[in-house]
Simulated scan of single mutants.
Amino acid sequence: MSSLTAHHVGITVSDLDSTLSFYRDVLGLAVVTRFEVGGEAFSTAVGVENATGRFAHLDGGDVRIELVEYDPVGDAHSGATLDQPGATHVGLSVDDVDAVVADLPPHVETLSDPQTTESGTRIVFLRDPEGNLVELLEV
């Protein structure tokens, strides 16, 4: 088997533009590229008949964050809490969790105030506009 390296973490969203605005304008991630994909090969690969997708790739440091809006839109997936099997989140390291949280716009929901775990890592979880969980951690 060839050697594997992480390329991206994908998040399916219902509104690419508003979610992209959050990751770019609130969290400060740079947009690497935007593109659209469709056609038979794409539909077959994703297992969705007549699928098209609008994509945005953001610079997440060592890995890209991929936001994708599909047409047709599937059923909503509830990943309300982290302890549910299949739950996902994106982890982003920051220099100062408390400073980042202090600078968040008032409409950004956090699960709690920043906490220091037993391992000494300072963390906070927040939700993007679609309810996806984002962990900010100070290491």
Rank of each mutant, 00 (worst) to 15 (best):
L20R: 08
E69Q: 15
Q84D: 12
L16S: 10
R34W: 06
H77N: 05
L137S: 10
G39D: 12
A30G: 07
E69R: 02
Q115T: 13
T81L: 11
P105G: 09
F42D: 11
T12R: 10
P105R: 08
D25E: 11
A99N: 12
E138D: 13
G79Y: 04
S3C: 08
V13P: 14
H77L: 15
D71N: 12
T19V: 15
D113A: 15
F42S: 09
P85T: 13
D71M: 07
G131C: 01
L104T: 06
V90P: 00
P72S: 09
G10R: 11
L4P: 08
R122L: 11
L126A: 07
T117D: 10
G10P: 12
D17I: 02
S3T: 13
V37S: 13
H77Q: 11
H8V: 04
L137N: 10
G91N: 09
V124T: 07
D95W: 00
I123N: 09
R122S: 11
T88S: 08
R24K: 07
V139F: 13
A56L: 05
H107N: 08
H57A: 14
R24Y: 04
D103V: 00
F42G: 06
A76M: 01
M1A: 10
E138C: 06
S14V: 07
I123L: 13
F22V: 14
G120D: 10
R24W: 07
P72F: 09
V134S: 03
G120F: 11
T12Q: 11
L111W: 07
L4N: 06
G120H: 12
G47F: 01
F22K: 03
V90D: 06
R127C: 05
D15T: 09
L20T: 11
T116P: 03
H8A: 02
G38M: 02
T12K: 08
L92V: 13
L133T: 09
G61H: 08
P105S: 12
G60W: 04
Y23V: 03
V100I: 13
P85S: 12
G86C: 01
A99T: 14
P85F: 14
V73Q: 14
V97H: 06
R64L: 14
L104E: 03
G53D: 07
Q115D: 08
G91V: 07
T44D: 12
A99G: 11
I65V: 15
S112Y: 02
L29I: 06
E36C: 06
V9T: 14
D83C: 09
G38D: 15
D96V: 08
V9W: 01
T117Y: 05
